[in-house]
Design a protein around this nucleic acid. Structure first.
Lengths: 201, 201
DNA sequence: CAATTTTTTCGACTGTTAGTCGATTTTTTA
DNA sequence: TAAAAAATCGACTAACAGTCGAAAAAATTG
């Protein structure tokens, strides 16, 4: 019981690294078990297919991201800061930059699409809560909150997906965020300083 | 010269249908050549890989969509109508509904992602042209046009990807389109009647 | 027309892959 | 200590994308 769970976690970690560095499609089960030093049968004792393993790897990744988002919600930041914080937390941090690069490579379309899909599902409710809070405080003014939050996430995804987003991309994003949520112009202006690292340099 | 091109087109059509009905991943080269009644070698005489074939299939699909978009630009519609026309033309028509359904199935993530990517690249310049026109006419007022158009496309993609988009989705989309382009409220309101077919019923 | 060159077609073959399965070992439970 | 359950093993299968040299068909040329 204990030992089994440990093994599974080890396998997930190994797969996580290999999927990112070489792509899901380009990583074979044989390579994973070679790296782990186990037999084929053992692998399939823990995962019913390679694709199921991918789902679990992604689940593992998103769990930690959701955790960060929830911490931000519970913090004492201002509402706009919370929103920006959550959105930027979805972007891999400095030390995880290889992950970001890996996900943008064409051999990772599948992972990329799956992550995006699940991420939106997880983050929309959390972010909606914050927007709700902002409406109560009078900072925002809008209806159809979840729909708007989803659009917001779509835009930020699109922004971050581009390896080289420009000043004007950020400008448009800030503008749209304010208008999307019905905030006063300038409310979100402070974003630009935070995000620009990593864009076109 | 002639015969070869014909064969290639036939193969592309066969693949197009099979990719859509069964998914790219679930369609084997063996099945394609069986359907076409040719040998392996012949297939690889025309396509250097299965993936290259996918690219060509997608190219074929998008060519016709781009053609429609350009026709709309050259028509005598009003600017807002042109924009709506182009965006809705990206959505498969009634008789092509199977295509849309096929693309939404999980076994088609790769195709879906690739189509989206290329579609945006093709449509952004066309749509930007129309927006530019609208600015000259005083209907819109904004800068960073290509960036805004890209965001607009991201949103409409997201809208149409959902099998069951709701009234509120459309409401938000219209609102955002107007604000994105700096149009007067109501300018795009007429969209809702056009799009709602196919949404939640 | 006949010779030759180019284009097109063929299908057996290879190497890699995900996944299966019954046997065997290790661990837990009673 | 014996029986049951959990974990491991690796040889095997079936499906797959892609290769290759040879042969047929079509086009070119003298």
């Amino acid at each position: 019981m204990k030992k089994g769970e440990k093994r599974k976690q080890d396998l997930l970690k190994i797969a996580y690294n290999m999927f990112l560095t070489r792509g899901y499609e380009n990583t074979s089960v044989d390579e994973i078990i070679a790296e782990a030093g186990i037999a084929k049968g053992t692998y399939y004792y823990y995962f019913k297919s390679k694709e199921e393993m991918l789902e679990e790897v992604i689940g593992m990744m998103l769990e930690s991201e959701a955790e960060v988002a929830r911490q931000i919600v519970g913090s004492d930041m201002s509402i706009p800061q919370k929103i920006v914080g959550i959105i930027t937390s979805l972007r891999p941090a400095e030390e995880e930059r290889p992950i970001e690069n890996a996900l943008m490579q064409p051999e990772n379309v599948i992972m990329h699409a799956k992550i995006k899909q699940k991420l939106v599902k997880i983050v929309v409710p959390i972010l909606s809560e914050v927007v709700e809070e902002g409406i109560k405080e009078g900072i925002f003014q809008c209806e159809d909150i979840p729909e708007r939050v989803r659009m917001l996430l779509m835009m930020s995804n699109e922004l971050f997906d581009e390896a080289d987003f420009s000043e004007s991309d950020i400008r448009v994003f800030i503008d749209m965020t304010e208008k999307l949520l019905g905030a006063k112009p300038g409310t979100m202006g402070f974003i630009s300083a935070l995000i620009s690292r990593g864009g076109t340099e």
